[in-house]
């Protein structure tokens, strides 16, 4: 069973990190994984996106082409661009703190998450991506939150270890939003 994610937003929102955390966590859980970033002129400060595939067999193509099981839109241009990439019956996560419009799709499940607002409540607007990720983990069950935390420790290392409690709290709050 493949889960195919597209994470999209603008630079600095941590969309690449969200994808990497799920990829790492999948690896820790002995799943087959791939992470593919967009690259090109747009990555210099503009929009950013990455494709993540988590599977129980060898990942065939790392490219997602209108068959994403989950799309995560952290800003409006990302929603405009990737909303149609969700396969029928798939899931769309919308950062409703920054995106006012509703999805035009009626054949998918849409989750509106006030990621930035909740992150601000937690004391750090930068944790919006972790709030969103908490919701995604709760709904998709793609990997366990414990594996994501282990991945976070791996990526943050000792230099950013002090940020882990905040991120952990953000993951929990995100999960609560969709429970």
């Amino acid at each position: 069973m493949d889960q195919k994610f597209i994470f999209a937003g603008f630079g600095g929102q941590g969309v690449m990190l969200m994808g990497q955390l799920i990829t790492y966590a999948g690896m820790f859980e002995d799943l087959e994984v791939s992470w593919l970033p967009s690259y090109g002129p747009e990555m210099r400060g503009g929009t950013a996106n990455c494709s993540v595939i988590v599977s129980d067999r060898e990942v065939a193509s790392p490219v997602i082409s209108y068959d994403a099981t989950t799309v995560v839109a952290m800003n409006l241009p990302s929603m405009d661009k990737f909303e149609e990439e969700v396969e029928k019956g798939g899931k769309l996560f919308v950062n409703s703190s920054l995106i006012e419009r509703k999805s035009v799709r009626d054949d998918i499940d849409v989750y509106y998450i006030d990621a930035n607002d909740v992150a601000v409540e937690l004391g750090n607007a930068k944790a919006a991506n972790m709030v969103m990720l908490g919701a995604i983990l709760e709904i998709t069950k793609v990997v366990s939150p414990e594996a994501v935390l282990k991945a976070l420790e791996k990526i943050f290392g000792t230099a950013k270890a002090h940020l882990i409690p905040l991120n952990e709290e953000a993951l929990k709050r995100g999960a609560q939003l969709v429970k």
């Binding site: 994984v33 791939s34 593919l36 970033p37 990942v59 790392p62």
Partner: peptide
């Protein structure tokens, strides 16, 4: 190719 250069895998 560009894909294998840019992607992450275990």
């Amino acid at each position: 190719d560009g894909m294998i250069g840019q992607m992450m895998e275990p």
